[in-house]
Computed example of a mutant assay.
Amino acid sequence: MTVHFPFQNTYAALPDGFFARVAPTPVASPRLIKLNRPLAVRLGLDPDRLDSPEGTEILAGVRIPDGAEPIAMAYAGHQFGYFVPQLGDGRAILLGEVIDIDGVRRDIQLKGSGPTPFSRRGDGRAALGPVLREYIVSEAMAALGVPTTRSLAATITGEHVIRETPLPGAVLTRVASSHIRVGTFQYFAARGDTAGIKRLADHAIARHYPQAAQAECPYHALLEGVIARQAELVARWLLVGFIHGVMNTDNTSISGETIDYGPCAFLDHYDPAAVFS
């Protein structure tokens, strides 16, 4: 019984400066603890095959499935008032893209799958608690009708990660319309790489804003589209009392999806001074 991902790799077809090619780091003893079977079906994947030893190895980063081109994406970001010209996927690896049953292209990414060239001396791993939090909160947001990344699976690695104390390690399989961020554009802008910005913008228009291609000024239409989706997204957060604790430009998806559930929470009652970071 072979697990098949009908991968495409349009982002990996961009120039090498957009990412680093890197494989997940295998783990000791992976165990699948949660599989989002309805989401697997929507992605055109067989949940029974994913819920197998081979599927578990893929979801934990032990085995690279056929057709995958693993990459860590490059991006910059404004973090807490300061601009960092190079961040990138320090603990996440994009395996590839699939077309779901609605005809929408979706990224499949492993979060907590080991160090990358962007790790900045980090271990590239994730602890079980944050993985489960992102799984629960992202799926709650989806159920509430808020645009969001989704969680396909959570896998225990059989290893520990060291934070303040040793914690059980885990890998989250994340699904997104893409992982292109505001900070991805900033990465090229900070380097004065106009050709890179144009290449990225053309890719973003084709993937997320095809109507912008027909506009008199496609790049201005792209900007207007991203602004509109971000404004609508934040308004939807307010409607359900959601606070994103780290809404930096590296955590802001141009597709208008909620991404990167770090220190976040829902308000139990209205408090304009509440923060979760």
Rank of each mutant, 00 (worst) to 15 (best):
T252N: 04
L43E: 01
D46I: 02
I259G: 07
T173Y: 14
E69N: 06
R125F: 11
I101V: 14
H4P: 03
E232C: 01
R31Y: 02
F80Y: 15
R105I: 03
P147M: 00
T165Q: 10
R120T: 11
I136L: 15
A204T: 15
G77M: 09
G158Q: 04
M247C: 11
E216V: 11
V161A: 05
G103A: 03
R105H: 10
R31S: 13
I259C: 12
S138P: 09
P15Y: 06
G88K: 03
I162G: 03
L35G: 03
I136P: 03
T165K: 09
A195C: 05
G241E: 02
R163K: 08
D48E: 15
T194S: 13
D268Q: 08
Y187G: 07
R236G: 02
G262I: 10
Q214P: 10
S177G: 11
R181I: 05
I259A: 05
G122W: 06
A265Y: 10
A221E: 15
L95S: 06
T184C: 06
D102Y: 12
P6L: 02
P168K: 12
A76E: 12
H269M: 05
H269E: 12
R42K: 12
G256N: 04
E139G: 09
R133W: 13
R31P: 03
E216Y: 04
Q214K: 15
Q8N: 10
V182R: 00
T155K: 00
V226G: 03
G67I: 02
E159W: 12
A212H: 10
Q211R: 14
G77C: 12
E57R: 07
S178L: 02
I254W: 05
V182F: 13
I197F: 08
V3M: 04
G245P: 13
G55R: 00
Y135T: 05
L223G: 13
Q86L: 12
I259W: 08
P85L: 04
A170Q: 03
N248G: 14
R133S: 08
A143N: 06
A215L: 11
Q211W: 13
G245L: 03
I99W: 04
L59D: 02
G183V: 11
A154F: 08
A68K: 01
G114F: 07
